[in-house]
Design a binder for these strands. Structure first.
Length: 282
DNA sequence: ATAAGTGTTGCGCA
DNA sequence: CTGCGCAACACTTA
């Protein structure tokens, strides 16, 4: 689950090591992850050199002297820079850059697309991404939430609303904001939106500083430093809440699961802000 | 060992 | 249009 922190880390690493390097050979083992034919893909990139590399949400955007390469790792995978003589066994797309090879793998559903650099907005996914989560201000977040129906969790996971948050970081983001995942957006009071904003930025930046989540690896195959110990409720079913001691539970929230403290993240009732909101709504 | 569960995204449906 | 649930089918863990 590469989410914003991991993608931002990979982007930084790729920028430091790939810019200016020439793609000598393109190999594709899983053509369905492309948005063009295998031949078109290879011809477009072979002989080109990498330029600036950036990211939008969970997508990596690698400029080249030809088209821009768009990468999405789906539910997990690796982007490795390895000696060309010792390539990993598992890969979906790879680029030989002289003595080293950029070897890309993903479990499922990853993408390696190409698009004209000036036509990024026309890409069906990247062109529709919302603003990067860590760059959203409190006022931006309030605007994005205004008039929305539905619950807060599906909204935060919708990449066309806010880009970069996935189902791993969201547990602790909502816990730190003291919000239940199914809390209706329409009932959120300004202090709760401020808490949510601080939680989003704080959690994503904290992981970025540690090199991203431990279950993903950098270009050299080293794991990130953001570990299970950095999570307060995520994946801690049965453990006590670090704030109130209540047992953390795992609940179904639509098509995803959520780990929550049932006392700190109540739908309504407990906090004065929630009570005030409920009263105002009634 | 067989199977359930999993980080994402796109699509069909109401 | 918008929100929601499922399907895509690799790999780990029970």
């Amino acid at each position: 689950m590469p989410e914003w922190p991991e993608i931002a880390c990979r982007t930084r690493e790729m920028n430091a090591r790939l810019v200016g390097r020439r793609i000598e050979e393109v190999e594709v083992r899983q053509p369905k992850c492309l948005n063009v034919s295998e031949g078109t893909f290879a011809v477009a990139l072979r002989g080109q050199a990498f330029g600036d590399i950036s990211c939008r949400g969970k997508w990596i955007l690698a400029e080249t002297t030809g088209p821009t390469l768009l990468l999405n790792l789906g539910m997990g995978g690796e982007i490795l820079l390895v000696p060309s003589g010792h390539p990993p066994e598992a890969w979906k797309v790879r680029f030989r850059l002289g003595p080293e090879t950029l070897s890309i793998n993903f479990w499922w559903f990853g993408s390696a697309h190409i698009v004209d650099a000036n036509r990024l907005d026309e890409h069906p996914t990247v062109g529709r991404l919302g603003p990067d989560a860590p760059a959203v201000s409190v006022d931006d977040l309030a605007s994005l939430l205004r008039g929305r129906r539905g619950a807060i969790k599906p909204f935060l996971l919708d990449q066309t609303k806010v880009a970069g948050i996935g189902n791993a970081y969201i547990h602790d983001i909502l816990f730190r904001a003291r919000l239940h995942p199914l809390r209706p957006i329409a009932t959120l009071a300004p202090p709760e939106i401020r808490r949510l904003h601080a939680a989003i930025v704080g959690e994503l930046e904290r992981s970025l500083e540690k090199g991203g989540a431990f279950y993903e690896v950098d270009l050299d195959g080293r794991r990130g430093g953001f570990t299970a110990l950095d999570l307060q409720v995520g994946y801690r079913e049965g453990s006590p809440c670090p704030v109130c001691g209540t047992t953390i539970v795992k609940i179904k929230t639509g098509s995803t699961s959520s780990y929550i403290c049932p006392r700190c993240q109540r739908m309504e009732g407990a906090s004065p802000t929630n009570a005030a909101t409920s009263a105002a709504r009634a």
